Simulated assay, not measured.
Amino acid sequence: MKKIIIIITASLFLCSCKKEVKDKNQKLNVVTTTSMITDLVKNIGGDAIEVKGLMGSGVDPHLYKASEGDVSKLVNADIIFYNGLHLEGKLVEVFEKMESQDIKTIAIGESLKKNTLIGSDYFASNYDPHIWFSVDNWKIITSFVIKTLQEIDPKNAEIFKTNGEVYLSKLTELERKLEAKIETLPKEKRILVTAHDAFSYFGKAYDFNVVGLQGLSTATEAGVQDVQKLANFIIEKQVKAIFVESSVPKRTIEALQAAVKSKNHEVAIGGTLFSDALGNTGTKEGTYIGMFEYNVNTIINALK
């Protein structure tokens, strides 16, 4: 990490003159971290801005480290949007360096009121950073991103406003679909067991008991006692299915399934959920809205 910061510092110094004489007609150069944020900013900015995402499909932001290939994207950015709340823990030092060199960095998590966040002892921020699993949160963040882009690129303010309003209406429609689907599952069956605890905001919004094998961060390894304890919980609650995550190795959930089987009980793997990253670009799951619909359909169909 120190090597990357040194490279970034040197690159910032060398690029400072070039940034001062940037063509006024050139598109706003936006860099984003997670694929959820990339999708959001593209929906609002449309063709009026240039968006470069650092993390693609299946990338775990908890463990992500800036590569030397990311340096040119970061130092040439007009604005950087990231999640914050220490989700991108290994990039915090890099973002601090960006700020000291007068590159605008925006933590979207800071747009949310603290009393709406879920507490966590596992992150330096003391809050669960998986804020995108509340559509209400995502609406607030959408409005925040619209306003931020308008302030930094006022000539395209109307484009951001129009695109943002369209996207907000789509989020409202998403909420309607999710609620209708979830209502088909009895409340006593709403127990969601996943590889790590990324779905607490989802659980709070839709009355699910969410249990993650690895806790909030994938940097935390699950021990034998954790597996055995959760296996007993699954048997006691007669949980029908447990879930793999696209950005987390499936061996942890397979170990949990095996532990349940060793106690003469069966639990199915209900499918793969997208937690810390979207699906492949060009697929339905490669968008925030498509990902959320896919997850809910997968969960409900497996637990019914």
Rank of each mutant, 00 (worst) to 15 (best):
N137S: 08
V239F: 00
A231G: 03
K263Y: 02
K240L: 03
A77T: 06
L54H: 03
K170V: 00
S100F: 07
K155I: 13
E96K: 14
Q26L: 10
M36G: 01
V30W: 08
T272K: 09
E99N: 11
K27T: 05
F133N: 12
T142C: 08
S67W: 04
F95Q: 10
Y201N: 00
T38H: 09
V166M: 12
K113Q: 14
D226I: 08
E236S: 14
V244P: 00
D128E: 04
N43I: 02
P154G: 12
V94R: 04
V248P: 01
D78A: 13
V145G: 07
G279I: 07
E173I: 03
L28A: 09
G215F: 09
T162R: 14
E173G: 00
F95R: 11
T148W: 07
L54D: 01
Q101K: 15
E165N: 13
L12Q: 12
E179D: 11
N209Y: 08
T272I: 14
I106G: 02
D226Y: 05
F160Q: 06
M36R: 01
E188T: 13
I79E: 08
V41P: 05
Y206S: 02
M36P: 00
V30D: 06
K204M: 06
S100H: 09
L230K: 11
I106N: 08
N295H: 03
T9A: 13
G84L: 14
M1G: 12
D226G: 15
V21Y: 11
V239D: 02
R190H: 05
F243A: 01
I118M: 06
F133Y: 13
G109S: 14
N280Q: 11
A48L: 04
I146C: 06
T287W: 01
L213Q: 01
V210S: 01
K263D: 01
V193C: 03
E183W: 00
F292T: 12
I37Y: 03
I7M: 11
E293S: 07
S143Q: 15
H265N: 15
T172S: 15
K139Y: 01
N232V: 03
S247A: 13
L216W: 03
Q238C: 02
L273F: 02
T33C: 12
I80P: 02
N280E: 12
L171N: 00
A241E: 07
C15D: 10
Y167K: 01
D102W: 12
A66R: 02
I269T: 07
E173P: 00
V59Y: 01
N156K: 14
T148G: 06
F95W: 12
G290Y: 06
I182S: 04
S72P: 09
Q101G: 07
D78N: 13
L273G: 03
S217V: 07
E20Y: 09
V31D: 08
L178G: 02
E99S: 15
K240V: 11
F81A: 08
E151Y: 08
A302C: 06
K263S: 07
